[in-house]
Every structure is written in structure tokens, then in C-alpha cells.
């Protein structure tokens, strides 16, 4: 796809995502019934879980692109990884801010060393490490390789971190969707949640394409600057 195509696709997807976001807000505020035990604060769940899903999607996607970059050495794969990591950082920040807002009401404390919240915090630091490595390297080619290694090792380590923090302590509500015996969430809430996941995924890919188009143009500008010099 050309850069212009990327931009068109990015615009279309982002607009679709924004439309979806408005619908999601309407569903979450007016349509879905209030959960009995937790009350109104449970509504944070419809943005918290989709944001978490998106940030893990981002690291998976970035690790895949990084692995392919190390193998094929196509600049586009490195750009894709960079843009996905940036999006992951944005959505992980959302998880880390909406989670405590919910936790203060539900648990009475802003922060607990709850497994999935801890995992997201560590993921956030892996994203930060990715940018630090990239920016601290004088030779850009080297920085790309180093950053790719950070993304891949981070993605491999996530299952280990997950298992260990779960073993360490669990306070978080049990999974309500991905369960072997089927979801326990009532239909309306499940629908709102799944719609939220869809909307956030569309928004992520829309903005990702936009961001990717920017990187493509930057590479073009750098190339022109080099040939002019």
C-alpha cells in the first residue's frame, strides 16, 4: 500500500473507530444495565478491558513485526513495530489510569499489586525501554535492531511475568469472558464489552496506519535530504 493509501485507510478506520466510540459511550452510559454488586463504577470495565486487550495486541504485533524485521530487514517492518509500540504505550497508559479509578471504589485503594495491573505496569516499562534504546543509539540501524530485540524478549517474557504475578497474589475479578465453561457475564454487558474491544481495536489500527504513514513520509524526507546533500 502506498503512503497516500495508508493515510486514506487510516482516516477511514479512525473515523469508523470514533463513530464506534460514540456508540460505545452511549451503550455504556445509557443502554447497558447497572451491575448489581459493584454499582455504576463497573462501567469503567467497558473501556478498561478493551484498552488492556489493545495494549497486549500491540506488543504481540510489534514483536511479530520486529522478528520479521530481523529476518527480512525490510524498513517497513521496523516502522510498523515502532508505530505499534507507540500505540501500545498510549493504551497501556489508559489501562493504568482507568484501573486505579475503578480500584479506589471497588477495593478502596488506588493501587494494589494485583496481577494484571502489575503486568500492565511492567508492559508499560517494556514500551518505555523500547523507546529509550532506540533514542540512545547513534547509529539508527543499530537502534532498530536493539529495539527489535527488546520487543521480542518483552513479548516472550510476558507469559512468565503473568504466571508469576498470578502466583504472587490475586485480587482481580476472575475472568468473565474467556472461561472454559463459557462467559458468565449477562448478555447485554457482554455485548457492550465485546463491542468495546472491537471499537478499540479499530481505533488502534486506524491511528496505527496514520502513524505509519507519518513514518513513511519521514523516511522519504530523509532520503531526499540525503540525496540533496
Amino acid at each position: 500500500m502506498s503512503t497516500a493509501g495508508m493515510r486514506r485507510g487510516g482516516t477511514a478506520l479512525t473515523l469508523l473507530g470514533l463513530l464506534g466510540l460514540i456508540t460505545l459511550y452511549w451503550m455504556a452510559f445509557f443502554w447497558v444495565p447497572t451491575e448489581v454488586n459493584q454499582g455504576v463504577v463497573q462501567r469503567i470495565f467497558y473501556i478498561h478491558v478493551p484498552a488492556a486487550w489493545t495494549s497486549f495486541l500491540a506488543i504481540g504485533f510489534a514483536a511479530l513485526a520486529s522478528g520479521m524485521y530481523l529476518w527480512l530487514r525490510d524498513e517497513r517492518l521496523d516502522r510498523a513495530a515502532l508505530c505499534a509500540i507507540e500505540g501500545g504505550l498510549v493504551f497501556a497508559t489508559l489501562v493504568l489510569t482507568t484501573g486505579p479509578l475503578w480500584g479506589k471504589i471497588a477495593w478502596g485503594t488506588y493501587w494494589t499489586w494485583e496481577p494484571r495491573l502489575t503486568l500492565t505496569l511492567l508492559l508499560w516499562f517494556i514500551f518505555i525501554g523500547y523507546f529509550m534504546v532506540r533514542n540512545a543509539t547513534e547509529d539508527p540501524e543499530k537502534g532498530k535492531r536493539f529495539a527489535a530485540v527488546v520487543a521480542i524478549v518483552g513479548a516472550i517474557d510476558i507469559p512468565f511475568i503473568h504466571l508469576s504475578v498470578v502466583w504472587f497474589r490475586s485480587l482481580h475479578p476472575e475472568p468473565v469472558v474467556a472461561r472454559p465453561d463459557g462467559p458468565t457475564l449477562p448478555g447485554d454487558m457482554l455485548l457492550t464489552l465485546l463491542f468495546g474491544v472491537l471499537v478499540f481495536t479499530v481505533l488502534f489500527f486506524g491511528l496505527f496506519l496514520f502513524r505509519y504513514a507519518v513514518e513513511g513520509l519521514r523516511a522519504e524526507a530523509d532520503l531526499r535530504a540525503r540525496s540533496a546533500a
Binding site: T14, L21, Y25, A28, F29, G39, V40, V41, R43, I44, I47, H48, A51, E86, G87, V90, T93, L94, T97, T98, L101, W102, K104, I105, L203, L207, F210
Partner: peptide
């Protein structure tokens, strides 16, 4: 009213952070 305040803050954060990125 406090839970409502937290819910609104969370939903506003989504707009601010995603909008900020855009």
C-alpha cells in the same frame, strides 16, 4: 456520587489520551 465522578473521569481520560495521540 463518587463512583460517578470516577466513571466520568475514566471516560474523559480515554478521549483525552487517544485524542492527544491523534
Amino acid at each position: 456520587l463518587r463512583p460517578y465522578w470516577h466513571v466520568f473521569a475514566a471516560y474523559a481520560l480515554v478521549i483525552l489520551v487517544v485524542g492527544g495521540w491523534a
